[in-house]
Nucleic acid binder design. Structure first.
Length: 433
DNA sequence: TCTGGGGTCCTAGGACCC
DNA sequence: TCTGGGGTCCTAGGACCC
């Protein structure tokens, strides 16, 4: 069983914890440049303040209703997030920290779920002061759905359990398509073209057919809604694949010196994040944009360079200014710029060793797969596609390639032989992974 | 020279999440 | 006047290799 625990209006709730005098007053928190609303308390939501609206559009409303306004304080939110994680961890067998305000919990055995949910609520309230919602489900997607109902269903109590197929059917009948985790407006339109318009219709759709038109992500979604877990828990936080630092400027500029200073600053801030995770970057990319909201000729471009992996601020800043030089067009006025660090690797590990380790690990995986096949099925070929993004996630997530004839895939190493067996029955002995 | 059945690396873009 | 800042995964095609 999975559970998803998330904090209600996290940033706003954290500010509240430290300002008990705000009791009864609505609260909003603003984005970095005080540009947009990024969190609203229930009271602020009730006033009709939408997520991510520009501050200036709702300023009047906010002032008229005496809403408390905060600039965001990410150091504080990070700290509070860690405290909340410590409270949650002992409840379950395993835990995945999914975002700053959400964690998945996982249990191997049956438990009194409702009761556990209530304990989580009360302990979180007493130990951190944060209001949370808890949703239980046999898959991550259903746990997310449970969480949604825990907070928003009529008479919601903060805990919602989806434990049976009937409960899942009931839950799915109560929500909109876009309430599902992984469906936003574009996917909504594409699903509608397949005549899939409600969450129940999606669950009962033909997975092969959906996969053909919409891809493997939507296919997984169908299985998840049916209670077959396809999205595994990820307990160790994987190393970052990209690190980005970008900002909108208060005013547009076409001054090359200012832009140089800006991207050099972004590069050094990104370098701090890089070193904090003990990583080095092998590639850096700079991007610039004109003001997308202004009625001017738009210009947006990026330029990347590759170099011997480093985490050195001065080197990275140098690459950044070099890239900027390639992009800069004096006729445009720029509103936004940023730096990406890419091709990240572990610091203090020489590249050749890294490569050999990976090759070795690949060989081991291949042998293990072959063993399984030989033991269980006598014959068959498994080919490891190292170009597949999944192959780089060795040992965590595996799925059968799309040209693999089985419509099913597995997300767990130890399920692989089962999937192979299904496939063997259905088609030939030659398979690829 | 042709063929089958692949692999690797790159770019670009689309879609989603918080 | 004023419109955030991060991330991930998947797909598709081209060029080239064995």
């Amino acid at each position: 069983m999975f559970a998803l625990v998330d904090a209600n209006s996290f940033y706003a709730s954290v500010e509240r914890v430290f300002r008990p005098d705000l009791e009864g007053r609505a609260v909003v928190v603003l984005s970095n440049n005080d540009g947009c609303i990024v969190a609203r308390s229930d009271g602020a939501k009730a006033l009709g303040i939408k997520m991510a609206v520009p501050y200036f559009e709702v300023r009047d409303l906010i002032e008229r209703n005496d809403v408390a306004v905060f600039s965001s304080n990410y150091t504080l939110y990070d700290d509070m997030s860690r405290r909340a994680q410590e409270v949650l961890r002992p409840f379950a067998d395993r835990m995945e920290v999914y975002s700053i305000d959400e964690s998945f919990l996982f249990w191997r055995h049956e438990c009194p779920w409702q009761q556990i949910g209530e304990q989580i609520l009360s302990r979180m309230q007493r130990w951190t002061g944060l209001p949370v919602g808890v949703g239980f489900g046999p898959t991550k997607t259903l746990a997310k759905l449970g969480n949604h109902l825990a907070k928003r269903a009529i008479g919601a109590t903060g805990v919602h359990v989806i434990d049976t197929y009937a409960q899942a059917t009931d839950a799915l009948s109560k929500v909109e398509m876009t309430d599902l985790w992984g469906i936003a407006h574009r996917m909504l339109k594409r699903l509608a073209k397949l005549n899939i318009k409600t969450p129940l219709e999606l669950r009962d759709a033909n997975p092969h057919y959906v996969r053909k038109s919409l891809g493997v992500v939507m296919e997984k979604m169908i299985y998840e809604l049916r209670g077959e877990s396809c999205i595994p828990l990820e307990c160790e936080t994987p190393d970052k694949q990209n690190i980005c630092c970008s900002r909108s400027f208060g005013q547009v500029t076409n001054d090359p010196a200012m832009l140089r200073e800006a991207v050099a600053t972004f590069a050094s801030q990104a370098a701090v994040k890089l070193r904090r995770q003990d990583l080095v970057a092998g590639r850096l990319c700079v991007f610039v944009n004109t003001d997308i909201h202004a009625a001017v000729e738009q210009y947006g471009a990026s330029w990347a360079v590759r170099f011997p992996p480093t985490a050195d601020t001065r080197e990275l800043a140098g690459y950044a200014t070099h890239c900027l030089h390639r992009l800069f067009r004096p006729q445009h006025f720029y509103k936004k710029a940023g730096v990406y660090l890419m091709e990240l690797g572990k610091r203090r590990t020489a590249q050749p060793e890294l490569f050999e380790d990976r090759a070795l690990a690949k060989a081991h995986r291949l042998m293990k797969v072959m063993d399984n096949i030989n033991r269980d099925h006598g014959r068959g070929t498994v080919r490891i596609a190292s170009s597949s993004p999944m192959a780089l996630n060795a040992g965590r997530t595996w799925h059968l390639r799309s040209d693999y004839r089985s419509p099913r895939y597995t997300t767990r190493w130890d399920e692989l032989p089962v999937a192979i067996a299904r496939k063997s029955k259905a088609a030939s002995a030659h398979s690829s992974l």
